[in-house]
Structures are given as structure tokens and as C-alpha cells.
């Protein structure tokens, strides 16, 4: 029986090694997906704009004249070295696209997750505790209906109400024009950049822009979180150790919070991790709805421009984000539950 600290480190190392096959498979999927495209990317993006000779040069630079297997090798090399190339249409280095627009997406998703947890966890716990009460039924119906709402439709309603009718909040973009011009990029997350430079006056504007997109996306996800928390609290409340805790005369509050909820947390965190796909997908739609300059709206932009290099780069980033999130989730679980490390 080794000390728990030692085995936690051991667990992290094992888990990191396990990441490799997953990354590999995801990258292979991305590559195959992009190469299923008929014709070649250069022609798709730039055909009609350049002469055939120019196109041939660009094809050679892009490596599209080589065999698929060589291209695959080069793609993997690009990802490993972090040189994802330059967009075909507007010559932006993909690393720059990722740093700038990725930061906006990160800001949006973190804020949305925050909203989702704040709304979903307490409601789910209440519903689970008072099973079959009107509160439970209400919470369940809320969870189902809010999840049934397309995020862009909720966004539309929010824009109508808070933007146009009440005129309380901005409905578009990440910041006011002046604020944007004022900030020096450090992290590209505007709120943090403003803090770094002590430009506190800009923060209200930045927060105001964040509210509607984050609340919209967060509410949709809160539906899932609520259901998850509810089901798992109901499950853990049936646990033998819950009855044992009651037999020791613990207060109902500690029984629910310290024992039932904490034990429910492991499956909740795991499944919340699986909802990363939901979160990132929702982010793409939210960004489109609110003109949020995230990596999702860039994806749509480059897709419409048929800039496959850019699309491939962005999809790759999403794939890596998924792996990173699943890793993070497992580490959180190992931290909560000693048995995971063991």
C-alpha cells in the first residue's frame, strides 16, 4: 500500500501514456476526413484566381502532389512540431488563428461552463433530494426543455429581449470597438489582458459582451448537468454508506452534501467531461449567433472560403482540445476518488 501521493503521480504518468493512441486515432480521423474531399484543396480554394502554373507551385508547397501516405506523415510531423502552416486564402499562420480566436473560444466556453454549473448543480441536487416533488418535476421539465432549445434560438430570444427590447446588453462581438483598440494582447483573452495592464475601466464593457453568449450556451448545458446531478444524487442516496452515516446520527445536510454529493461527483465529472463535445459544438453555434470572434466562427468562415488548410488546422486543434479535456477530467477524478489512482 503505497502513499496516495506517490500513486497519484504514477496514475498521471500512466494516463499521459494512454493519451498517445487517442491523439493518434483522432489525428488520423481528421486527416482521412480532409482527404476524402474530392479534388485537391489548392484547386478548391484558389482555382479561378491563379494561373495553372501558380497553382502547381502552390500544390507543391502544400505537398499535395505527393502520395497520401507521405502527406499523412507530414501532417503528423506538422502537428508534433506545432507548425500547422498558413491559411491559403489570407496567409495567416494557423498558430496565430489558434492563439487569437482560440482565446476567445476559451473565454466563452469557460464562462458558459461556469453558468452551467451554477445553475445545474444546485437544481439537480434539490431535484434529486426531493424526488417526485413538484420541484423535482419542474427541474426535470426545465432540464429537458432547455436542452431541446437550439442554442442559436435561445440566443435569438436573448438578443431580442435584452438587446433590442430592453436595450441592456450588447448582442454582438467580444468588446466595444474602442476597448478592443485599447488593449495590448498578452494572453488574447481580453478580460485577462485588461487586468494585466490594469485597464479596469474596460472590464465592464468586456463583461457586458460576455453575458449573453455565455448565459445562452451555459443554460443549454445546465440542462444536461442538472439531469446528471439529479440521477447520480438519487443513485448515491441509496448507498449503504449513506444509511450507515445516518445511523451515526449525522445531520441530513452533511449526509447529502458530504457523502451523497461527493460520491455522485465522480460520475458527474466523468459525464460532464463527455459533454466537452456538446460544449465545443455549442460554442461554434453561439459564436455564429453573437459574432463572437472565436475559433468556431473562423472555422465556418474558412469552410465557406474552401480553405482546407485552415479547416484542417482548426479541426486538429479541436481534436487536441478534446484529448486535453478528457485528460483533465481523469485527473480531477483521480483527485476526488482515491480508488481511481489505485
Amino acid at each position: 500500500m503505497s502513499s496516495s501521493k506517490g500513486s497519484l503521480r504514477g496514475y498521471i504518468i500512466t494516463r499521459l501514456i494512454l493519451v498517445i493512441p487517442m491523439v493518434f486515432i483522432l489525428l488520423t480521423l481528421v486527416f482521412l476526413l480532409m482527404r476524402v474531399a474530392p479534388g485537391n484543396p489548392i484547386l478548391a480554394a484558389l482555382g479561378g484566381h491563379l494561373s495553372p502554373a501558380q497553382l502547381a507551385v502552390r500544390e507543391r508547397i502544400g505537398g499535395y502532389d505527393k502520395s497520401l501516405i507521405v502527406q499523412y506523415g507530414e501532417y503528423l510531423k506538422q502537428v508534433v512540431t506545432g507548425h500547422l502552416g498558413t491559411t491559403l486564402t489570407d496567409h495567416r499562420p494557423l498558430t496565430q488563428v489558434i492563439a487569437q480566436n482560440g482565446a476567445a473560444t476559451l473565454e466563452l466556453t469557460v464562462a458558459a461552463m461556469f453558468v452551467a454549473l451554477i445553475v445545474g448543480v444546485p437544481l439537480g441536487m434539490l431535484a434529486g433530494r426531493r424526488r417526485d416533488s413538484w420541484l423535482d418535476t419542474g427541474a426535470r421539465v426545465f432540464g429537458i426543455v432547455i436542452y431541446a432549445a437550439p442554442v442559436f434560438f435561445l440566443g435569438l430570444l436573448a438578443q431580442l429581449l435584452f438587446g433590442h427590447i430592453l436595450n441592456w446588453l450588447p448582442t454582438s462581438s467580444e468588446s466595444g470597438v474602442l476597448v478592443q483598440a485599447n488593449l495590448t494582447p498578452h494572453t488574447n483573452i481580453l478580460i485577462i489582458d485588461a487586468m494585466i495592464d490594469g485597464q479596469w475601466g474596460d472590464i465592464p464593457d468586456l463583461l457586458a459582451h460576455l453575458v449573453l453568449p455565455a448565459a445562452t450556451l451555459g443554460l443549454v448545458i445546465s440542462g444536461v448537468i442538472l439531469r446528471l446531478v439529479r440521477v447520480n444524487v438519487i443513485q448515491t442516496m441509496k448507498g449503504d454508506y449513506i444509511e450507515a452515516a445516518r445511523a451515526r446520527g449525522l445531520k441530513e445536510r452533511s449526509v447529502v452534501v458530504r457523502h451523497a454529493f461527493r460520491n455522485a461527483l465522480v460520475p458527474i465529472v466523468t459525464v460532464t467531461g463527455l459533454q466537452a463535445a456538446l460544449l465545443l459544438s455549442g460554442a461554434v453555434l453561439t459564436e455564429e449567433t453573437f459574432n463572437w470572434p472565436g475559433i468556431g466562427s473562423e472555422l465556418i468562415f474558412y469552410l465557406e472560403a474552401r480553405d482546407y488548410i485552415a479547416v484542417q488546422g482548426i479541426i486538429t486543434v479541436f481534436a487536441l482540445a478534446v484529448v486535453a479535456i478528457s485528460l483533465l477530467i481523469d485527473l480531477i477524478n483521480a483527485w476526488i476518488d482515491p480508488r481511481v489512482r489505485y
Binding site: 486515432i25 474531399a37 463535445a277 465545443l280 465556418i300 479541426i315 481534436a319 478534446v322
Partner: peptide
């Protein structure tokens, strides 16, 4: 299982977007 889990973890909408886009161009 490995392939399956990878697809499952991937943001489904992106997958659908890319496939739908590629199909609709062809």
C-alpha cells in the same frame, strides 16, 4: 472501441459540418 470512443468524444457538430460540407460540394 478505440475508433468509436474517439469519434464519440469529438465535437459531433464539427464532424457533421465537415462531412456535410464535403458532401454538398460534391
Amino acid at each position: 472501441v478505440l475508433i468509436n470512443d474517439s469519434i464519440f468524444a469529438f465535437p459531433y457538430l464539427l464532424l457533421a459540418i465537415v462531412i456535410a460540407f464535403l458532401l454538398s460540394t460534391s
